[in-house]
Design a protein around this nucleic acid. Sequence first.
DNA 1: AAGACGAAAGTGGTTGA
DNA 2: TCAACAACTTTCGTCTT
Length: 308
Amino acid sequence: MIAEYIKKCPECGGINLFWNKEKGEVICKDCGLVIEDKMVDFTQEWREFDSDQAEKRRRSGAPMTYTQYDQGLGTEVGVKADLSQLGAKSRNKFFRLRKWQYRISTAIERNLKLALAELKRVASYLKLPKAVEEESARIYTLAVQRGLVRGRSMESVVAGALYAACRRHEVPRTLDELSEASGIEKKEIGRTYRFVTRELGINILPSNPVDYIPRFASALKLLPETQSKSIEILEKAQKAELTSGRGPTGIAAAALYVSALIHGEKRTQREVADVAGVTEVTIRNRYKELLDKLNLDDEIKKNKKKKE
DNA sequence: AAGACGAAAGTGGTTGA
DNA sequence: TCAACAACTTTCGTCTT
């Protein structure tokens, strides 16, 4: 259960706490700090793509973590087989198998060790919640086991896994941010992200502009009212079908820009554009659409009068 | 002088034949 | 596999505050 006494964010003092029961997290909507993520969660945190995987993943007993390279477990081809029962031929085969198993598993382990270190580095740089880190570690592990890393740099797959995990947990980071944190080119991350998610059959909902609002708003130091106003605007925009097909960051940025205007907390298009990682032009386009379809100019005028 | 606006050309990715 | 296409960016000139 949530600790009822947590009312304020220890980081920024904000009272805009968001309790996500499903994920067992309490997040400060102002600064994005994850205040509590150790809550007991009764839902599955893994996915089963087929019965084979279901077999492997359903478990009871000690918890398993994917941020340890061998998940705290480890297997080798039977050490216990009774060799005297085998003919020379099958005995050779047995040794060969064990040798290969050993080579493959150590190769995978080495890779995972390095990759997970990198993953942790990037995740902490981006201040990602633990749950996201776990998820991305899981995705990466699967990717390695399926040999999807071959021909790609380890780092780019790590970045792709992180990006995917962020999206699934609805705490999206932009490709630009991932790119900055990992030092991998944006399009490379996008490519591996698509590849990995497709190959692993992970399906990801298109990201919702609303998810970006808290982070952008706090980066711009906007009042909480402005923030909720922008979410309101976004909801209207979604009903007016202004959001589909557009880049979510652009829409989020435009909504923030408008609500800042309405609340007299003027920010320049450039400022908003920078934190959202889009250009002023995109903000202008979205902004114009918002004004057209939602007749928000009334609200802006109203506010101007108030000021006078 | 800085910010807002808009037109035009370029880029990378998706889609449909 | 290729071409058409939509969304977004870059660049640049003009208007507004």
